[in-house]
Design a protein around this nucleic acid. Structure first.
Lengths: 232, 232
DNA sequence: GGAGAGCCTGTAACACTGTTACACCGGCGC
DNA sequence: GCGCCGGTGTAACAGTGTTACAGGCTCTCC
């Protein structure tokens, strides 16, 4: 890499409509395209057209479509704010980390698609891992147990967001939960059948799932540490 | 749809190497291709070549690539065996349902990819939903609480399989957990750092996560049903 | 000044994808 | 004979990622 990326015409050249494409400009335009229409809408020709240049310039700057997506993922992950746990008990702070992570991910739906498509799920929650380690440690878990708890929460959060995001993209399920639980009343529990026929409230389901998991993880191995297991 | 799909040359025609393509044959060949190399390897031309026919015949029989994949998903889901819960307590049986579902899914990795790509995650765990409803009911949960517990387990199982499958496809993570937890020892807990640097045992992590979640779900709202909230 | 080097851009192609317009064949009913 | 209909084949269109190659443009060195 040459250290100087000077523009041929100088800043805001008086002659041409644009000034010597930069790698950053390419990434910006690509991110904008992806943000607007999803990763599938990011074509090399379309990107070149958006930038008013030729495809080969794109390739010169970013090399590949793969590397372009890699760079976008990296950029977006770094753009995510640091998680700051809130709450009094370690369990509450873990739940707050999970909520924060989910919120940050949902603010960048394209990121989820890109990351999953490229097999970089790991990358997605490295930022939150250290916070989780801290809280799990504070809850009294040590060693392998602590590591397993951290990973359980990570998997749950990311898995949940994947499923949730996936379900949002599929409006018309063919058999569908609705008619399935409309016909046969579940276990003679009409309230249950009705609840399953209704669409789920994602935020509520998420928080309760994480809370249940964390409760199960902390009370199981570490003893009662979180200031009483039933704050209800 | 004409009721009769008779072959022009009669069964196992004496003249040609094949006998009047059937929709079933197309689906079989497509499933074989997907099973071998994943959904991305299923191209219409490749499928036609595999069958020794022309692309237009494929289109005549299945209409679309979309519908072809839809049919494959439906077919594979129906091919999955029914889950049969094992264990004495409801919690144990729920865990066994989860394990069975995960096993069935992992035996069909292509299914996971297809289903996720097509936004049909819902479809994937409808077979297990009724078993889960039964067990959750047996555990004493009723109404909306029961529905939420069922959904929580569903989301966790499918989300876990998605994350797990995704991670398997990505051998080289760039920053990576290993060097991340090699440098800074976590919270002065070398055992934790070592555990996080090692790759996780997926089966163990899965079972423990589900167990913790189920414990949390059952002890939280239904009262002490699963043999006391603290078996420790 | 001229020569060369390095950075960057443009043209045009290759191989591949899903999809379809159109012609064809082969048996059926009339 | 004729037409019809189910099924097949040829060849094309539009789109994708990618690259070989030719050039322009600026800077540096002589």
């Amino acid at each position: 890499m040459a250290g100087s990326t000077r523009a041929p015409g100088g800043g805001t050249g008086p002659r041409g409509p644009r000034t010597a494409l930069t790698r950053e400009e390419v990434l910006d335009a690509a991110a904008s395209l992806v943000k607007r229409n999803g990763p599938a809408a990011l074509t090399m020709r379309g990107l070149a057209a958006e930038l008013g240049t030729a495809v080969t310039s794109i390739y010169w700057h970013v090399g590949n479509r793969e590397s372009l997506l890699d760079a976008l993922v990296e950029r977006t992950v770094q753009e995510m704010g640091a998680v700051r746990p809130a709450g009094r008990t370690p369990a509450a702070r873990i739940v707050s980390v999970a909520r924060g992570l989910r919120r940050e991910l949902r603010e960048r739906p394209h990121l989820i698609a890109m990351v999953h498509e490229r097999g970089l799920t790991e990358r997605m929650f490295l930022p939150a891992q250290q916070a989780l380690v801290h809280e799990v440690h504070a809850a009294g878990l040590r060693g392998a147990k602590a590591a397993e708890a951290v990973r359980a929460v990570q998997y749950q959060v990311v898995g949940y967001v994947l499923v949730e995001r996936n379900r949002e993209r599929a409006p018309a399920q063919r058999p569908g939960e609705e008619e399935l639980w409309d016909a046969r009343s579940a276990e003679h529990d009409p309230a249950l059948a009705r609840a399953l026929a209704r669409p789920a409230d994602p935020e509520r389901l998420f928080v309760n799932s994480v809370r249940a998991l964390v409760d199960g993880l902390l009370t199981r191995a570490g003893g009662a540490v979180s200031g009483g297991p039933y704050p209800q």
